[in-house]
Write a protein that binds this DNA or RNA. Structure first.
Lengths: 240, 240
DNA sequence: CGTATATTTGATATCAATCAATACTCGTGG
DNA sequence: CCACGAGTATTGATTGATATCAAATATACG
């Protein structure tokens, strides 16, 4: 395990970052077995070591944000990755500039896509679960589309909290005490709102008795059913 | 080749529809070789024949719209599929209700996921191109997220036209004369706008001399560069 | 050719953005 | 341990883009 310095990945933000999706335990273990481990410190850009190589990362600890940029410079955070999520650094013909950046200190497993393909050829079951995970990710993406397209500010905020709670549960952490390592500005960016609007939504949920805000980056869910009701449903949103 | 009557797929709209993505020619041919062909008429719901089986479809002719529904009944069209696109009917644990419906008369190839998995196990290259196609689809989805999150009404409309033009070119059709089989209401639904706003955007583009509207469902692109400028960039958007 | 439907155009309302100010956190140093 | 300060979050007032409500025009199809 070694540390990549910021200087060594200076111009990597032009690379195309593919996707993130939760895999099942055995698939992660199989991939981890052929991988090397890496650490990134907060704010570092996660990128391939050799600029041309296509690479997969499995996040073991910490949080990564994935952003896309339009030609006129407007950007948006399109995903937050947590432990167990996969990031594939693949090249496409798309004119999209994608960046993955650590929002906390992170540990990742690194696998070249060549090795991953070889592993899939050897074990078709792994290929299937990989494909299944990516298909599930498309469901999540369609859900995100519906969130931006059909939900109002407080519903989006509720969906966000519920999503993070559900993902925490899947990682084996308690679901009623959600830690949000990112800033209000980053939450707002992801939800296509402003910091002010997100803040108002948090205040509203607190005043309704649905959540508590002991600290800005820690949310206690008091009424998960009420939260789900405001969130309005969608993929991966349920009370656990 | 036979025709499925509407009655035979009455309650299929509860199934989970996975994704759509363009595959390369040889991959499509390999899959088509083990598939059966089906026709659906306009407005029919595309679904699996046996309710429990997971199935993949390849669209050969026509257009399919994929919609998702929130628990409170709000829905949104999350994708329009055209010839060459793939639709995978997979089961997930997501509480999402997804539907695929024909917007024109369509021809599809049908493959069971069991057969598809077997084919991938036999030919790792096919598995790779399938995975690659789905990864590319995630790029497209992230682009859709940015469209809804960051672009204004006229920019979304321009992006929509450019996307359809680019996809027509990929199918070997001319890119400057785009046929839009869907209604303004369906375009608005997909773009998270209203019919009125889409109409105003079309009018604006016409008045700027960027497009012509000989008929409501036919758009002639006069100034592709200008259209791209308004669209603001993003995945799959370029002048060809 | 006439009618039903779809599209376009116009006037007002609304949700979230923007502009502006205050309060809170947390790290740092006295 | 407390005081200070910089950044972050919350709260308040106003503006703006798009939805909504309403009407007119165009299209398609029998």
């Amino acid at each position: 395990m070694f540390r990549v310095t910021p200087a060594s990945c200076a111009d990597c933000d032009a690379g195309k970052v593919g996707f993130c999706a939760s895999l099942n335990e055995s698939a992660i273990d199989r991939i981890a077995a052929i991988s090397r481990e890496l650490c990134f410190s907060e704010l570092q850009i996660i990128a391939q070591e050799a600029a041309a190589a296509t690479t997969a990362f499995i996040l073991r600890k910490g949080m990564i944000k994935v952003s896309h940029t339009l030609t006129d410079g407007r950007q948006q955070i399109v995903d937050f990755l947590t432990a167990g999520d996969v990031l594939i650094h693949h090249d496409t013909d798309n004119a999209v500039s994608a960046t993955a950046e650590a929002t906390t200190d992170v540990d990742v497993c690194v696998v070249s896509l060549v090795d991953l393909d070889a592993l899939c050829a050897e074990s078709p079951a792994l290929g299937q679960s990989l494909l299944g995970a990516v298909l599930g990710e498309i469901d999540r993406k369609n859900n995100q589309v519906m969130m931006l397209g059909r939900k109002r500010s407080d519903e989006r905020t509720a969906s966000f909290l519920l999503d993070f709670s559900n993902r925490a549960v899947r990682r084996g952490e308690p679901g009623n005490r959600v830690s949000l390592p990112m800033s209000r500005a980053e939450i707002a960016d992801y939800l296509s709102l402003t910091t002010e609007t997100v803040s108002r939504a948090f205040t509203l949920l607190r005043d309704e008795g649905i959540i508590q805000l002991p600290k800005p980056h820690e949310v206690v869910i008091c009424d998960a059913t009420g939260l789900l009701e405001i969130a309005g449903g969608g993929a991966n949103l349920s009370v656990r």
